[in-house]
């Protein structure tokens, strides 16, 4: 009876060691977007993010995520307000999941309308704006690219 018990205590020690070093190499892999170039996209027709526009939209995003869900009238009014900045309520929104060998991988694209509903329904604003593409008149947003907040 003594033998197996001793054997077990060796197990315990070994395993304690194994599990206690359950280390950062796992954690480092879970970073959401590993693109170091931030908001710059090297395509000629995409402008860099206008900081003021970005901050303003992100504060709208935060507001929708915190808004009272039962007060749909206010939400709808605020949505109409935000849509003023967009080409249409169907303006596409792309969420970059990660970069790999210079290629971007996205979540399934959605419209700005769906995105705002998403913020409001799920009570969270987990994304930051990477790029905004404006139309020819430089007044309306034609496309939004988001990344997960670090």
């Amino acid at each position: 009876m003594h033998q197996p018990k001793r054997y077990l205590s060796v197990y315990i020690l070994a395993l304690m060691a194994l599990f206690s070093c359950k280390a950062s190499n796992q954690a480092s892999k879970t970073d959401q977007v590993d693109d170091p170039d931030g908001q710059v996209i090297s395509s000629a027709d995409v402008i860099m993010v206008d900081k003021r526009l970005k901050d303003m939209l992100e504060s709208y995003f935060d507001m929708f995520s915190e808004m009272d869900q039962e007060d749909t009238a206010t939400r709808d009014a605020k949505m109409a307000e935000v849509f003023e900045y967009f080409n249409s309520p169907d303006t596409p929104v792309f969420l970059v999941l990660y970069n790999r060998e210079g290629k971007r991988y996205y979540d399934k694209p959605m419209t700005i309308t769906d995105y705002i509903y998403y913020l409001n329904d799920t009570r969270q604003a987990p994304h930051t704006i990477r790029t905004l593409k404006l139309d020819e008149t430089q007044t309306k947003i034609m496309r939004v690219e988001l990344a997960v907040k670090q």
């Binding site: 395509s43 596409p92 792309f94 991988y105 996205y106 979540d107 399934k108 694209p109 034609m142 496309r143």
Partner: peptide, 10 residues
């Protein structure tokens, strides 16, 4: 989308 390839996970 507008001539750009979007590679996404559905």
């Amino acid at each position: 989308v507008e001539g750009m390839d979007i590679d996404f996970w559905d």
